[in-house]
Nucleic acid binder design. Structure first.
Length: 621
DNA sequence: GCCGTTTTCGGCCCGACTGTTTTCAGTCG
């Protein structure tokens, strides 16, 4: 069983336990177990299982280790079979409805016999839901709307599309006279490949004008929440956005809180607690009787609670708000000196952690030891490869693409049109490719454009692993991107062997989109990424980060380990028109999330260095 | 269910918003 399958099982157990109303900490243990398994490489997992050392992994205890071993050897898990049998299968999908959680599902199931979305809709239709204790007309109304819209609401959005929406909103917020600072936070700021909703963090002198502007945005379809510090809207596209208003002295805490992943935030808070501090979106404060009272068991700090109870009850949990007197910054050393996120990290003994790394995947330990890399950034790029022209399925000519690259300030641009087997993309025949190579030589010689153009191909990897052009022709090119575009249905072993054969070809410079996935639309073909990475390293082949927002392939989760072993990447936009050259911005997200430095990205090299590398490779081949 | 230079038992991150209540539970992030 693969690590993904094992993780899926653990997550399913967590979901089912949630529906049963189990101890939330037990549920969390299964979820974190799933994440830990995902973060291991398959061979490492195999080794741990074989050596019976799963218990050495943090987050895996006796119970999980036993279940994982059972899954691995038998492919099944008795515990899960039994658990499934106790829960109506249709109840799981009810969790997709906003505002409906495990507790409500339990009541709906036990009192109304609801077993799936259809029976819930029926119960709403005749008013039985509104009549339940703890429910009401509004709840029923929300459930009806949630059922109706669950497809649009549940959808995630490509990072690039969310970014297009968010940028003008941030600019608009900053332009308001009441606004002091405004940022987009959330998974968007972390550069995640898909985004669930948008989070805007704003500090302002006045609340009302900012909220009014926000809910008045032209694409707002519905205002779903409007409170003192949080306002939520739903756009016509189904994308949801939260606006959070905080006093300026708390801006950094809110920004950090709403940027980090759940795991990152939990780890940061635990770190704060270990230092006698409590961290929240409101600030960083010493742990006091009042703050510990809310979470401590009733038996603890009885004397302190008696004293703090009457006066502090409302204030302790809700420390400061927008518009409240700004007594927070004055005189409190735990908060007063935090003016930037770097200050916040420093307060906890950490180097600054870039937003892209805040996933709770080892960044805090690295920041503690000063071992965070200096991440590659957009200005480091000096050119790119894997771009198409009208010769195959692009929409701009060679000259137009080169001119656009020059406008971006790039020293070079690699053209890689499709090869002949990609009929659907108007792939080039041998003859047309030779004509294109000649056209590129002429173009470079003309001096029309200060950006040098490299002649390449995006050469199909045929089903048996051969390349679509013969070696003699490929040797006439500057470089070759080898990609799979057909026969996706091979099993993992066959697909892996196919790609490795292409990597072993002496003319292959780069491997295109490793898995062929289309985000939110189709999974990639199954490959053993570890084996392919090893082969690429052994043969000096680059694996691209295909920066097309719908691909972002190879996935960022592989890169940290891959580059530690010596893999090189190139951030390639797979541009089919001039505007799409900007996709490298999305590829930079992937690279940064993969902890990559400038040195690990081939297209940060100068024109002379790239020419030399291509020349050396041809000689070696 | 996991974990431990204060613990092998008793903790486990923190707070906002809504809807339903009349002080709080459930949900969400």
């Amino acid at each position: 069983m693969t690590k993904h399958e094992i993780a899926d099982v653990l997550n399913e157990i967590a979901l089912l336990l949630e529906l049963k109303g189990e101890n939330p900490f037990k549920i969390r243990a299964y979820q974190s177990g799933a994440r830990v398994i995902e973060s291991l490489e398959q061979p490492e997992l195999e080794r741990l299982l074989a050596a019976n050392e799963l218990l050495t992994v943090k987050g895996i205890g006796e119970a999980l280790a036993k279940k994982i071993a059972e899954l691995h050897t038998t492919g099944k898990l008795e515990f899960l079979e039994k658990l499934r049998a106790t829960i109506a299968p249709g109840l799981v999908e009810l969790l997709q409805i906003p505002g409906v959680g495990p507790k409500k599902i339990k009541v709906l199931h036990e009192q109304l016999g609801v077993v799936d979305i259809a029976s819930l809709a029926a119960a709403c239709a005749d008013g039985r839901v509104a009549a339940l204790a703890g429910f009401g007309a509004k709840t029923q109304e929300k459930i009806v709307a949630g059922i109706k819209n669950r497809e649009a609401y549940g959808r995630r959005h490509l990072w690039w599309e969310a970014w297009q929406v968010a940028q003008p909103i941030v600019a608009g917020l900053r332009a308001l006279p009441q606004v002091k600072r405004a940022e987009a936070a959330g998974s968007l700021r972390r550069g995640l490949e898909t985004v669930g909703d948008l989070d805007f963090i704003v500090s302002a002198t006045e609340i009302e004008p900012v909220v009014s502007w926000f809910v008045g945005l032209s694409d707002v379809q519905e205002v779903t929440a409007r409170g003192e510090t949080k306002t939520s809207v739903r756009f016509v596209t189904g994308l949801q956005a939260d606006l959070r208003l905080v006093p300026d002295e708390q801006f950094i805490f809110a920004l950090h809180h709403f940027t980090g992943s759940k795991d990152h935030n939990v780890q940061m808070r635990q770190r704060a607690l270990a230092r006698g501090l409590t961290l929240s979106e409101w600030g960083l404060e010493p742990v006091t009787a009042a703050t510990s009272e809310s979470s401590a068991s009733p038996s603890s700090s009885l004397t302190a609670a008696a004293g703090a109870g009457e006066a502090a009850a409302p204030r302790a949990r809700r420390p400061k708000r927008a518009g409240a007197p700004a007594d927070a910054a004055s005189g409190d050393p735990a908060r007063g000196s935090v003016a930037t996120e770097a200050d916040l990290f420093a307060r906890l003994g950490l180097h600054f952690i870039p937003p892209e790394l805040r996933e709770g995947m080892g960044e805090i330990e690295a920041a503690e030891h000063g071992e965070l890399p200096t991440l590659v950034d957009l200005p480091d790029l000096r050119g790119t490869f894997h771009c198409h022209t009208t010769a195959s399925d692009g929409r701009n000519t060679l000259a137009e693409m080169a001119t656009a690259a020059a406008s971006a300030g790039w020293e070079y641009l690699g053209i890689a049109d499709h090869s002949k087997s990609s009929f659907q993309a108007n792939g080039l025949t041998e003859q047309r490719l030779l004509e294109q190579v000649e056209a590129i030589r002429v173009f470079n010689a003309s001096g029309r454009c200060r950006t040098h153009v490299f002649a390449g191909t995006e050469c199909d990897i045929l089903p048996d692993g051969r390349l679509d052009f013969d070696e003699a022709l490929l040797r006439k090119l500057d470089y070759v991107v080898a990609s799979v575009h057909s026969t996706f249905a091979l099993d993992e072993a066959a697909m892996t062997a196919r790609i490795i054969r292409a990597i072993e070809h002496p003319c292959t410079t780069m491997l295109g989109h490793l898995t062929g996935r289309l985000l939110l639309r189709r999974d990639g073909y199954r490959v053993d990424a570890g084996k392919i990475i090893d082969a690429a390293i052994a043969h000096g082949v680059i694996i691209e980060i295909n920066a097309a927002p719908k691909r972002l392939d190879m996935d960022w989760r592989h890169w940290r380990k891959a580059t530690a072993r010596g893999l090189l990447t190139s951030i390639n936009p797979d541009a089919h028109e001039t505007a799409e050259l900007a996709y490298v911005r999305a590829g930079i997200n992937t690279a940064r999330k993969g902890w990559l430095t400038k040195a690990q990205v081939f297209n940060t090299r100068s024109l002379a260095e790239v020419k030399a590398a291509f020349l050396a490779r041809r000689r070696a081949g």
